[in-house]
Write a protein that binds this DNA or RNA. Sequence first.
RNA 1: GGCGCCAUGGUCAAGCGGUUAAGACAUCACCCUUUCACGGUGGUAUCACGGGUUCGAUUCCCGUUGGCGUCACCA
Length: 481
Amino acid sequence: MKVRTRFAPSPTGYMHIGNLRTALYAYLIAKHNNGDFLLRIEDTDKNREVVGATDVIYKTLKLANLKHDEGPDIGGNYGPYIQSERVKNNIYMEFAKKLVDMGKAYYCFCSEERLNSLKKEINGEFISMYDKHCLNLSKEEIEKNLKEGKPFVIRQNNPTDGKTIFHDDIYGDIEVNNNELDDMILIKSDGYPTYNFANVIDDHLMKITHIVRGNEYLSSTPKYNRLYEAFGWDIPVYIHCPPITDENHKKLSKRTGSASFEDLLSFGILPECIVNFIALLGWSPNENIEIFDLKKMVEIFDYKRISKSPAVFDMNKLKWLNSEYIKNLSDDIYLKYAMPFIDKAINKNLDKKKIASFVKTRIETFNDIPEKIKFFEFVSPYDINLYENKKNKIDKIESKNILEKILEVLKNVDDFSNENLFNVLSNFAKENDIKVGKLMWPIRIALSGCENTPAGATEIANVIGKDETINRIKNAINILN
RNA sequence: GGCGCCAUGGUCAAGCGGUUAAGACAUCACCCUUUCACGGUGGUAUCACGGGUUCGAUUCCCGUUGGCGUCACCA
């Protein structure tokens, strides 16, 4: 049987990182087995409609390079792939009525007030379980209610004794008492199915073989299985994934600022890096490697190695991984990403390509660039104590002396290539019995005003040119006076 | 609160009855060096606790503790 997996997000307007990982795993399972990966939009909550939300989903999948084989935008043999459109085809209501006929579901006319009265407050949370009140309605009552147009929902009719056992390929066999199984709503009073119901129906109709989802669905899975069993359908393979949490072991939220794919992109993280990183959150390959592209992932992905315990989303490591990705970028592609950030900081007519190459090994995200290079544009006021440096055994007085001498030297240099500048200055150092590092220190400070720079003194001089170099050294001497 | 799941360093994690308990991020030290970074070398740091089972438990079982999830006409 061909492996078929699906990604079934509800259109919320942004892509939660945990969701993306679920999509990734579903994709990898399908592709590792030469199967199909499909996209289905679960928009059965009319109150939560967000305009443009499905576009976010398409865009994310595209950027992450997770190509689906079937979906609303590209069609397929099992459409429609948007649940609200399937509602129009009456798919869910028909199946729900079948269940009613089989005695596996029933009409419920309970009012909101009655339902509320069933709720109990425990630790500030309201919890409730339906009491099967409407299960006892006579046929006549039901028909009367229906005829009068009284609003109704359809509930699943679950047993109250015995146990249900289900199997998950990650968590193993899980056994629950049937009295834990609430008579969940299948069809809402607006005629739309709930997620719980639509999901089961569609997964079956779309011939999904492996269901990949977050483990928050673990506790409702036995109810889904009773649905499959009622219809006599094959139960798919369940693959529940552990949660991704923030550093406080709480669910990743918008507040942490790193909950969504879009946030991460806006921080200057590369999409392929995000994909690589989240693959490692809750899964590890058999080989001891951790940097790989999607193709390699498809090759080595063994879903049985998905772990059971939650993973903390470590921004630190993501940034490190991103720096590795940046270093491995070809110059062309690197420039394409980096240039907008260079432009943010540099307006003067400087060699931006050269500046870009300076920072390539020194940034973790592209957002780091402007701050690191803005001194090329102009020197901000800086602390004069920078001219004192222990390691190079230099103080302000000596710095000033060096700068005054070097100023005269540089005035007579016309070839401002990095190579020539370095030769001239290191020769000067030798002749005057000064260590090269010590000589370069005050020059670099004078040219940048920064303790740390993404380039050495002569590289900076080369980029800003002779006139600017001379000016900056003159200014430095003034400051030191 | 009921039920369910989980538990190896600060973090991601390998391990699947006998190991000096891998590797990576972070951190620290040193080397390299025209500063920083990159790169290189090395160090610190982990099996939650208590009982079993066993010749032997990080590994298997039970309990405790802790964390998470779930208990909606949300998905």
